[in-house]
Design a protein around this nucleic acid. Sequence first.
RNA 1: CGCGGGGUGGAGCAGUUGGUAGCUCGCCAGGCUCAUAACCUGGAGGUCAGUGGUUCAAGUCCAUUCCCCGCAACCA
Length: 527
Amino acid sequence: MDMSKSIYLTTAIDYVNGHPHLGHAYEKILTDAIARFAHSCGNPVFFLTGVDEHGQKVQQTAEKRALSPLAYCDELAVVWSQFIEKLGICNNDYVRTTQPRHQKVVSAILNKLYKEGHFYKESYRGFYSAKEETFLTEKDRLPDGSFDPMYGEVTELIEDNYYFKLGEHQQWLIEYIESHPDFIYPESRKNEVLGFLKKEKLEDLCITRPVSRLSWGIPLPFDSEFVTYVWFDALINYMSIAAAHGDLQILKLLDLTPEDFPENGQEQMEIWPPDFQVIGKDIVKFHAVYWPIMLKAIGAPFPKRLIVHGWWQKNNQKMSKSTGNTVDPIAVINEWGLDAFRYYVLRELEVGPDGNWTDSGFETRYQVELANGLGNLVNRSLSMLNRYRDGIVPAKNDELKNETEIIVQNTFKSYQDIKIQGALIKIWELIYRANQYVDQTAPFKLAKQPEQAQRLDEVLYNLVEICRILAVILWPIIPETAEKIYSQLGLNTQPDLWSESFWGKLTPGHKVNKPMPLFPRRDLNKK
RNA sequence: CGCGGGGUGGAGCAGUUGGUAGCUCGCCAGGCUCAUAACCUGGAGGUCAGUGGUUCAAGUCCAUUCCCCGCAACCA
C-alpha cells in the first residue's frame, strides 16, 4: 500500500436546511468506523465531511427569517458541526460549500470544462410552478392532463440555462462500472446503476439556475446571469478540499497553486482519489453517474469505492417528522451513551440493506450484548484478577490463543470487506466463548484450592488478554469503550492499532486497575 | 409488465464459492456464584412464501406465481 497517500474517506455533505436525524448519524458513524479501521491498520487517514449550503430552500428560509443566506448558514453550520462532534467522528476537515476554498475550485472546474467545450447554453420551454419553484414534466401531470393543485398556478415559461453534455459518456461509463466490480458497493446497487444506464438515455444535466430565480449559489464564472446548480457545486467538495490541502495532482489539473489557498499554510498532502465515498441509496445516481462523468471530463482519477448504505425506518414505517415517527440521535446518546448508539446502528444492519429502528431492539442489544456480554465479561475478568492476584497479570498462557486468533482474523476480513455487522457478530463469538470459558474453568473454585494456583494463573491470563484484544478489535466501532477497557487494564497506550491485537502483548507482572461497569445495566421494566 | 430490496421456528435477523438449517430475544428445565440479579448447559419450536426445473445434493442456481416495502431529481 502506498503509505504516502492518505486513505481518503468522504460522507455525503448534509443539506443544512434540515435537522440532523438518524440517517445522517448513521452515515457519519459508518464512515467513521471505516476510517478508524484504516487508521488501525496503520494508514494515514483523511476523513472529510461537511455541509451543503446553497440552493433554494436555504435562500427561502433565510428570507423568511430576514437573515442573509450566509448568516443563516453560519447558524446552521454550528448545529451540524456540533452534531458531528457529538457522534465522536474523527474527521480531519469539515467542508462548507460557502467557503472560498471550495468556491475557488468550483470556479476553476467550471472554467476548465466550459473552455473545453463540455457545456452549451439552451433555452428550455416548460411548465413552471412558482409555488414549488420547479419545472414540471409530463410525468407530473394527473391522468386528466392537468397538474396537481399542490403546484399552485402553473405557467409556461422559457428559460435559458447551461447544460453539461452527458450523452457521449454513457458507453464508457457502462464499461467502466462493469470492469471495476468494486466501484459500487453493494453489488445490488451496481446492478441498479447498470440497469439504468443501459435502459435509459442519459439526458444532459442542467448545471445552472438563472440568478433571477435563484441567487444563492456559486456564480458562474463565465456568465454572471447564472449561479451553479447545487449538485454540481456539492459534488465538487470532495475535490476542492483535496486541492485546499495542497494535493498537487488536483492543483495541477485545475491550474491552481498552493498560494490560491493561503488559509492552508504550506501543507501538501496526497489525498486524491477518494478510497471510500459513503452515501445513501437516494443519491446513487449523482455519485455513480454524474460524478464519474464530471471527473472524466476534468481528467481526474476516479474514487475507488462508492459505499451505498440503506435507509432507516422506525417500527417498520418510514421516518417522518410530520407523523412524529422519528429517532433523535442526540436524545438517544444523552440517555444511553455514545458507544451504545454507535454499536446499535452498526450492529443492527449490514451495509446496504435498510434498517429498522425499534426502541425495544435497541434496549435489548444494550442490555444483552453490551451490558451482560461485553461489559460483564470485562468486569468479572478484572474483578477476579484483582481479587485473586491483587491485579497482577500472571505468566503468559496460550490456551485460547488459537481460537482468539481465528476470530480476530475473521473480524479483520469482515472489516476489510465493509461487513461491519459481520465483524461484530464474530467479535461477540469471542465474548460468548470467554464467558463459557469462565464457566468451564471455574476460576472462583480454583481460587479456593491452593494446589490449583498455577491453573488459576493460566485462566486469568487468558481472560484478561481476551479483554485487551477485544478493546483493539472493537476500537473502530466503540472507541470510547475500547479506551476505557485499556484504561481499566492499566495500560497507558491506545487500542487504536490492529497490531496490538496479537496474542500475548499483555506482560506478566503488569498491574491492572479496578473494573468499572462499561455499560451500566438498566432496569427496563421501570421505563 | 417502471426500478430496486425483501419474504428463514412466537419476534428480530445471519446464512460466504450449493453438501447434515444457525444466532439473539422470548419460553421451559437444570447448573454456577467471579461478575452489572449478570454467566453456563440442555430442551420445545421451522415442509427456509408457493410451484416447476437443474443437480448425487438447493434456503443457496434457473423459471414462474403470490405477498410486503422502498425509490421514481435534489429527502442519508
